[in-house]
Amino acid sequence: MNLEQARVEENRLLAADHRRMVLHAPAIAASAGAGQFVHLRAHDSFHPLLRRPLSVARCDRTAGTLVLIYRVLGEGTARLADRRPGDGIDVLGPLGRGFRLAPGLTPLLVAGGVGVAPLISLAEECVRMGRAVEVVAGARTASLLVGEADLRELGVECCSATDDGSRGYRGPVTGLLGGRLDGRALYAAGPAGMLRQVQQLAGATPAQLCIEAAMACGVGACRGCACRARGGGYRLVCTEGPVFDSHEVTYDG
């Protein structure tokens, strides 16, 4: 874990309310793994106060850069969107427990909306290791399939689903999973409803879910980011996650 004054190299609009930020943060880039996240200070005043967690979408150790792909939702991400190339930004990371690739099974990555961000980093790792990887990605409409360009650059094929049918399959991305699970391990990130569906559809197929929770510290100090553990009790998303084995967590209750 490093606390680094990073430099913004790019902060570009990808689609309505979606941006791609490139940060020069060599200390963090040196050790960031697929599915880990950074905790950023969007700006320097009291509103909004807390840092914001964003997944590492790509990591280039040689160049010392990180790519973040984010959706502008509220005040924090709006302040982030204001940042210009050359600006400094305070980044804590890499944080959390990322994806663990299951040996012997083909990774099948399931992305919902901006949830594609952590999965791009997993695709990047697969490419680096010379492993085959499959991706299915869903969004409301074609322009919001915000991971496409990075995946294409990595040479990874992506099967798409859109709610309005403007690209690929019309319907939820989980509709692309039927008959596809043999010999696969699932890695999913996206809205809670989608992750719950993946959990149900996976059955005996190994699955890992990248989960979100409101975070204050991001490092396990405040115990605020609890999610429900299967069988009772809680897990901390920031240190025990954000990537959990599907059977560790539950959306019921």
Binding site: A214, A216, R223
Partner: peptide, 24 residues
Amino acid sequence: WTGNPPPRTVETAAGMLNAIGLEN
């Protein structure tokens, strides 16, 4: 102690609310 059900924190104007429930 197991603590309170989530969500346990939320940001407010120049502050935050927590209801961790003394998980320890």
